[in-house]
Simulated assay, not measured.
Amino acid sequence: MPDTASDVDTLSVIFAALADPTRRAMLARLRQGETTVTQLAEPFAMSLPAVSRHLKVLERAGLVSKGRDAQWRPCRLDAAPLREVDEWVKGYRAFFDERYDRLAAQLAEPTTASTTATDKTEES
Results as ranks from 00 to 15, higher is better:
residue 19 A to E: 13
residue 89 V to A: 15
residue 46 M to N: 01
residue 33 G to Y: 02
residue 22 T to R: 07
residue 43 P to F: 04
residue 74 P to N: 11
residue 84 E to N: 10
residue 83 R to N: 10
residue 63 L to T: 05
residue 48 L to W: 03
residue 84 E to G: 09
residue 56 K to F: 10
residue 123 E to H: 04
residue 46 M to G: 01
residue 110 P to T: 13
residue 44 F to E: 09
residue 56 K to V: 15
residue 114 S to M: 12
residue 80 A to S: 12
residue 55 L to V: 15
residue 90 K to W: 08
residue 89 V to G: 04
residue 29 R to Y: 00
residue 42 E to F: 01
residue 41 A to H: 05
residue 57 V to T: 15
residue 92 Y to L: 09
residue 48 L to C: 05
residue 48 L to N: 12
residue 39 Q to K: 10
residue 65 S to Q: 12
residue 29 R to F: 00
residue 105 A to I: 01
residue 58 L to D: 11
residue 17 A to W: 01
residue 49 P to A: 11
residue 109 E to Y: 02
residue 99 R to S: 07
residue 112 T to G: 06
residue 3 D to N: 10
residue 68 R to A: 14
residue 3 D to F: 06
residue 107 L to N: 07
residue 88 W to A: 15
residue 41 A to E: 14
residue 68 R to M: 08
residue 20 D to P: 01
residue 40 L to H: 03
residue 29 R to K: 04
residue 97 D to W: 00
residue 34 E to L: 01
residue 74 P to K: 07
residue 29 R to P: 00
residue 61 A to L: 04
residue 69 D to P: 00
residue 37 V to E: 13
residue 6 S to P: 01
residue 2 P to L: 14
residue 101 D to F: 00
residue 38 T to E: 15
residue 42 E to K: 08
residue 112 T to H: 08
residue 47 S to R: 06
residue 87 E to H: 08
residue 3 D to C: 04
residue 30 L to P: 04
residue 7 D to Q: 09
residue 40 L to P: 00
residue 98 E to S: 08
residue 49 P to N: 12
residue 20 D to Y: 08
residue 42 E to R: 11
residue 103 L to F: 02
residue 14 I to L: 12
residue 54 H to R: 13
residue 16 A to H: 11
residue 87 E to C: 05
residue 16 A to R: 12
residue 72 W to N: 10
residue 107 L to G: 07
residue 106 Q to C: 11
residue 59 E to P: 00
residue 21 P to C: 05
residue 75 C to G: 00
residue 112 T to K: 11
residue 68 R to S: 11
residue 20 D to V: 13
residue 105 A to H: 05
residue 5 A to M: 10
residue 78 D to K: 04
residue 85 V to S: 12
residue 106 Q to G: 06
residue 81 P to N: 08
residue 55 L to G: 07
residue 2 P to V: 15
residue 35 T to C: 09
residue 99 R to L: 14
residue 118 T to I: 12
residue 87 E to Q: 13
residue 23 R to W: 05
residue 97 D to F: 01
residue 77 L to T: 07
residue 56 K to W: 05
residue 34 E to I: 00
residue 3 D to W: 08
